[in-house]
């Protein structure tokens, strides 16, 4: 009998090269973004670029913070469809059931999401203590504790990872030819980049965070507990929807 855990570990092991190929640029870009944030803070004091309303109407420090948040999500967005597509080899070569393929990918993706959240939190902690750029983070996170921020990022990344997993499953299920795959796979990246640079996905994230906070206060629950619960529910819904799609995927 083939063990699900072994298959999952194999998928994880198989993905390591792809992971590092994206993870290293992620760390480099994250650090660069923080340095950029520090430069902006130091030079403009959290001001705006190009006129009273700033570049695209977004404050520079806010833009930087959103960008930093976006890098991790962008990484997940690139990594997850590539991983799912690459792992189809296991289905084809070793007669793995779709359930094992699903759980293997799930493990791999969730570990990656947590890993990114931890990396980002550590980088933030280091910069916060070394460079004293509190205001940069205060915009979104209100200068919360390291643990609070970590829980927030883990919850957010797990949810986003499951959303991308659902989306990638849909692409793999629906795809008819390579051209459509590429377009569909690039679509969220394009949307995300445009959102980050133009409208600021951070606004949406902030809105969600505020609503969760209000809800947690009304229910007399701890903020973190409710946040974990809310994201947990959303993550589970996405994953539960992803499996039926993979189950119907042909892998000729």
């Amino acid at each position: 009998m083939r063990s699900s855990l072994k298959v999952a570990i194999d998928l994880l092991y198989f993905n390591r090269a792809g992971f590092f190929m994206v993870y290293i640029p992620f760390v480099v870009f994250t650090v660069a973004a923080f340095l950029w944030g520090y430069f902006v803070e130091a030079k403009y004091g959290g001001g705006v670029l190009f006129g009273a309303n700033g570049l695209f109407g977004v404050e520079l420090s806010s833009l930087t913070a959103i960008g930093i948040e976006g890098i991790g999500l962008l990484f997940l967005m690139l990594y997850i469809p590539i991983t799912l597509d690459g792992n189809l080899k296991f289905l084809r070569a070793f007669n793995v059931t779709r359930k094992k393929y699903f759980t293997g990918n799930l493990l791999s993706i969730l570990i990656t999401a947590v890993d990114i959240a931890i990396t980002l939190s550590i980088v933030k902690l280091v910069f916060r203590s070394l460079l004293n750029v509190h205001s940069l983070y205060g915009i979104i996170f209100g200068g919360g504790s390291f643990m609070g921020e970590l829980i927030w990022l883990i919850s957010l990344n797990l949810f986003m990872a499951s959303l991308f997993y659902l989306y990638s499953s849909f692409v793999i299920w629906h795809v008819k030819n390579a051209a459509i795959t590429i377009v569909l796979m690039l679509a969220p990246a394009i949307i995300m980049i445009s959102a980050v640079t133009r409208f600021g996905i951070g606004d949406l994230v902030e809105q969600i965070a505020i609503r969760i906070q209000i809800l947690s206060q009304s229910l007399l629950l701890g903020e973190s507990a409710l946040m974990i619960l809310a994201f947990g529910v959303m993550t589970t819904i996405c994953l539960l929807m992803a499996y039926p799609m993979l189950k119907k995927t042909s892998v000729e």
Binding site: M1, R2, N95, V96, T97, K99, K100
Partner: peptide
């Protein structure tokens, strides 16, 4: 989705 059966096949 029957791993027991699929594991008996090498294709």
């Amino acid at each position: 989705e029957n791993d027991k059966v699929l594991g008996k096949i090498f294709y």
